[in-house]
C-alpha cells in the first residue's frame, strides 16, 4: 500500500515538467537580497528612462549654448526643500543651474541616454568579444595566437586616453545633432552614438579572453567529442553546443559591462569630450563643474544618479553570478 502510494506520488511528480535550469537559477536569485535589490534599482532606472519624459517637471533642453532666453527659469536656486525663501518644497527638487535649468528634470531626461549607452556599448562589446573569443578558443593554433596578441595590444593600451582622442576626432565631424533611423523612425543622438561605438570597440579584450578560456575548456569535454564522432559540423558544435553552455557567463559579464560602460561614458563626458547636444549625467557634471563652489547641488545629484545606477547593475551582476554559476560562489 505504502509503496503504491509512493509510486503514485512519483508518477504525479513526473507529470509536471522538470524545473528548467533558468527556473532553478531564478529561485536561487530570489533568495539573494543584494541581487534582488540590484534588480529593483535597474528596473527603476529603466522605468524612469522610458516614462521619464511624462513626469519630468520641465521639458528636455537643448545644449548649453543653444538655450533660448525664454527657456531660462530661476538661476542658481538651491534645492527647494533647503531654501527658506521658497514656499513650495517640490519646485526644484535638485536645485537649478547657473543657466537656469532644473537639475531634477535634466537628470530624468538623462536617464534614457544612460540606458542607451549601457546597452549599446555592451551589445557591441559582447558581440565582438564572443566572435573573437569563439574563433580563438575553437580553432586554436595560429589564429588563437594572433587574436590573443591583438587582444594584448588592447589590454596594454591606455584605453581611456585613446578613447578621448578618438571621440574628440570623430565628434568634430558631427553635423546634425540627431540622426533618424529610416524605417523605424527613431531619432538617435549622433555625437553620443559615436562615443558609444568607440567605447564598445575598445573594451572587448578582457571579455574575449574570458570567452576564449571557456571555449577551450568546453571544447575538450566529452560531449563535444561525442557530437564530433556523430559527424556534427563545427558551426553546429559552436552554436548548438558550446554557446548555450556559455550563456550564463555571458549574461553575468554583460551586466557588469553595462555598469562599466555607464561609468566610462560619464568620465568621457565629464572631461569635456562628450556630445554637448545630449544632456547625459556626465554632461551635467561637466557643465556645472566650474561653478560647483556655488551650485554644489548640480554636481551632487547627477553623480548620485550615476552611483546608484552603476551600483544597481553591479549588484545585479554579482547576484546573477551567484545564481547562475553556483560553483564560482565565494
Amino acid at each position: 500500500m505504502a509503496s503504491n502510494k509512493k509510486g503514485e506520488k512519483i508518477k504525479e511528480k513526473s507529470k509536471r515538467r522538470p524545473a528548467s535550469q533558468w527556473a532553478v537559477a531564478w529561485r536561487r536569485f530570489k533568495r539573494n537580497k543584494a541581487g534582488v535589490f540590484g534588480l529593483i534599482i535597474v528596473m527603476a532606472v529603466f522605468f524612469v528612462g522610458i516614462f521619464g519624459s511624462f513626469f519630468a517637471p520641465y521639458p528636455a533642453r537643448p545644449n548649453k549654448d543653444a538655450i533660448k532666453p525664454f527657456y531660462k527659469g530661476d538661476v542658481r536656486k538651491p534645492p527647494s526643500w533647503l531654501d527658506p525663501e521658497e514656499p513650495n518644497n517640490f519646485k526644484y527638487l535638485f536645485g537649478t543651474t547657473p543657466i537656469g535649468t532644473d537639475v531634477f528634470s535634466d537628470v530624468i531626461h538623462g536617464t534614457k541616454y544612460t540606458i542607451y549607452v549601457g546597452l549599446l556599448v555592451t551589445a557591441i562589446t559582447m558581440a565582438l568579444s564572443i566572435v573573437v573569443g569563439a574563433i580563438a578558443g575553437f580553432y586554436g593554433r595560429w589564429v588563437d595566437n594572433l587574436l590573443m596578441r591583438i587582444s594584448e595590444v588592447f589590454l596594454v593600451f591606455p584605453a581611456l586616453l585613446f578613447i578621448l582622442v578618438f571621440v574628440r576626432i570623430f565628434t568634430l565631424t558631427v553635423g546634425d545633432p540627431f540622426l533618424t533611423i529610416p524605417i523605424i523612425n527613431i531619432q538617435i543622438p549622433a555625437g553620443l552614438t559615436i562615443v558609444v561605438v568607440i567605447l564598445g570597440l575598445f573594451n572587448w579584450a578582457s571579455n574575449a579572453r574570458m570567452i576564449r578560456g571557456e571555449f577551450l575548456r568546453i571544447r575538450e569535454l566529452e560531449f563535444i567529442e561525442a557530437e564530433r564522432a556523430l559527424g556534427a559540423s563545427n558551426t553546429r558544435i559552436i552554436f548548438r553546443h558550446i554557446l548555450p553552455n556559455l550563456l550564463s557567463s555571458i549574461i553575468v559579464v554583460s551586466s557588469l559591462t553595462i555598469a562599466y560602460a555607464i561609468l566610462l561614458e560619464a568620465a568621457v563626458s565629464f572631461l569635456g569630450f562628450g556630445d554637448v547636444n545630449t544632456i547625459t549625467w556626465g554632461q551635467i557634471l561637466q557643465e556645472n563643474f566650474s561653478e560647483m563652489r556655488i551650485v554644489w547641488w548640480a554636481e551632487i545629484f547627477p553623480g548620485l544618479a550615476i552611483l546608484l545606477t552603476v551600483f544597481g547593475f553591479n549588484l545585479l551582476g554579482d547576484g546573477l553570478s551567484d545564481a547562475l554559476n553556483p560553483r564560482l560562489r565565494d
Binding site: L263, A267, F270, E299, I300, G303, L307, V310, N314
Partner: peptide, 12 residues
C-alpha cells in the same frame, strides 16, 4: 567604491 565615478568622489 567600484560603482562610484572617481571624479565625483573628488568633487564631493
Amino acid at each position: 567604491g567600484v560603482s562610484m565615478p572617481t571624479f565625483w568622489l573628488g568633487i564631493i
